[in-house]
Simulated assay, not measured.
Amino acid sequence: MAHRVVIVALPGTFVLDLAVAAQAFGRRPSVFSKIRVETSPPYDVRVCGSAALGTSLGFSMSELGPLTELSHADTVIVPGLEAPWEPQDPALLDTIAAAAARGARIVSLCAGAFVLGQAGVLDGRRVTTHWALAEEFRAAFPAAHLVEHAMYIDDGSVLTSGGMLASADLCLHILRLDHGQAYANDVSRILISPPHRVGGQAQYATVPARPLTGALAPVMQWMLTNLAEPLSLETVARHAHMSPRTLERRFRTETGESLQAWVSRHRVERARVLLEETDLTITNVAYTSGFGSTQVMRRHFLLHTGASPSDYRTAFRAPQQV
């Protein structure tokens, strides 16, 4: 009997998440036969949900199976959805919890982790979700161990992925677990997606632009204006007419981080903009951002984004037309 995969479609389901899961585990397109001969599909895939279910793109899906299919699932997949923080049907949550208790593999894609959290299957687990929802997720499920910038997390019987296209990364990982690397590689060739992407979600995350507030706002604005200059604690303290010790204490109180950590984070953000939008060399980006050398910029860039400056530019800069 084929391994049964049940994909749960909920109101506002992200169509891309659902499609990636259905394509990764469902019937292979005819072109797959040019890569691998497959006499029978390895999974029995069911999509379940309410009749005429609305999606995140505004259209409805019909002919969905009943949610009772979850009681026979070997793998349960919950795609992301438009408003993941909204309370879900208690009966659905109980069914997911029961599937987990009997040993089914439980998978969430993107914001689907909120549904698993409501079902109580994430307590004590290492999990991830879309990086932009990290704050809301931590507040809602403090007993889960959120790995904010991971593409996906495999915590044994519970697996979770980051933002929408990270769903493909996790699905390929599951195929690798079930059928080996060669099989996952062949499916990735159909998807035109690498079997494993280097780096995590951090390279896609941005720092939201927020107005500078608090007593140190003028000092922080001066620092942003002078990011390319040396900004040691002593230098900034002289500008602020404070002792270094007083400035550091007040800075941690207002921002929750050290002055140097704040400077490093904003220099990385400056470098990201320059790498994406200008033709400056990596060396010039390093100096313009205030890092002083390419080696120092690379170290901080890897820390904050999980990618090197050159890899980041390759990923986020439009290729030159020829």
Rank of each mutant, 00 (worst) to 15 (best):
Pro309Glu: 08
Leu159Asp: 03
Ala140Lys: 07
Arg317His: 11
Gln23Leu: 09
Phe137Gly: 04
Ala307Trp: 10
Pro218His: 01
Asp279Glu: 12
Pro66Asp: 14
His241Asn: 08
Ile77Leu: 06
Ala307Glu: 14
Ala21Glu: 05
Ile174Ser: 03
Gly256Ile: 01
Arg36Asp: 10
Ala240Thr: 05
Leu70Ile: 10
Gly117Glu: 02
Ala22Leu: 04
Ser161Ala: 11
Ser243Asp: 11
Gly214Tyr: 06
Thr225His: 14
Leu212Arg: 15
Phe59Tyr: 15
Ser56Leu: 08
Pro142Lys: 02
Ser308Pro: 15
Phe14Leu: 14
Leu175His: 14
Val236Tyr: 01
Pro42His: 13
Arg28Ala: 10
Ala144Lys: 02
Ala150Lys: 04
Asp74Gln: 08
Phe25His: 03
Gly58Pro: 08
Trp131Ile: 08
Pro230Gly: 02
Ala140Asp: 10
Ile77Gln: 12
Ile96Trp: 08
Gly26Glu: 05
Ala97Thr: 07
Ser243Thr: 12
Ile96Arg: 13
Phe291Pro: 09
Phe137Cys: 07
Leu274Gln: 11
Ser243Gly: 12
Val158His: 03
Thr305Phe: 02
Arg138Ala: 11
Leu212Met: 12
Pro87Thr: 01
Gln295Cys: 02
Ala315Leu: 15
Ala9Lys: 10
Arg46Thr: 06
Thr206Phe: 05
Ala168Tyr: 13
Gln88Tyr: 08
Ala113Trp: 02
Pro66Ile: 02
Gly26Gln: 04
Gln203Arg: 14
Thr225Pro: 07
Ser264Met: 12
Glu234Leu: 06
Tyr183Gly: 01
Ala143Gly: 07
Gln221Pro: 00
Ala111Glu: 05
Thr294Pro: 05
Leu274Ala: 00
Pro218Ile: 06
Val158Arg: 00
Arg272Trp: 04
His72Thr: 15
Thr283Trp: 15
Arg267Tyr: 05
Val15Glu: 08
Ala144Trp: 04
Arg46Pro: 07
Ile192Met: 14
Phe291Ser: 03
Gly306Ala: 04
Val107Phe: 05
Gly103Val: 03
Glu254Ala: 13
Gln260Trp: 01
Leu18His: 08
Arg245Leu: 09
Met151Tyr: 13
Ile35Val: 11
Gly12His: 06
Thr160Pro: 03
Gly80Leu: 03
Arg28Met: 02
Leu170Asp: 00
Arg250Asp: 06
Phe291His: 05
Ile77Asn: 10
Gly12Gln: 06
Ser62Asn: 14
Val107Asn: 10
Phe137Trp: 09
Gly162Val: 10
His145Met: 06
Gln201Leu: 11
Arg105Met: 07
Arg317Asn: 10
Leu224Pro: 05
Glu63Arg: 15
Ser232Asp: 07
Ala237Lys: 00
Val31Asn: 10
Leu116Arg: 14
Ile190Glu: 11
Gly156Phe: 05
Gln260Met: 11
Ala150Gln: 03
Ser60Gly: 09
Gly214Ser: 04
Val268Ser: 01
Pro29Asn: 03
His239Cys: 01
Arg46His: 12
Thr225Asp: 15
Trp131Phe: 15
Thr55Glu: 02
His145Gly: 07
Val121Asp: 01
Leu233Pro: 00
Ser40His: 11
Gly12Tyr: 04
Ile77Glu: 07
Ile153Ser: 12
Ala24Trp: 08
Ala83Trp: 13
Glu69Arg: 01
Ala132Met: 09
Arg210Glu: 14
Val268Trp: 09
Leu191Ile: 00
His304Arg: 13
Ala132Glu: 11
Gly65Phe: 13
Leu57Asp: 15
Thr288Pro: 03
Gln23Asp: 12
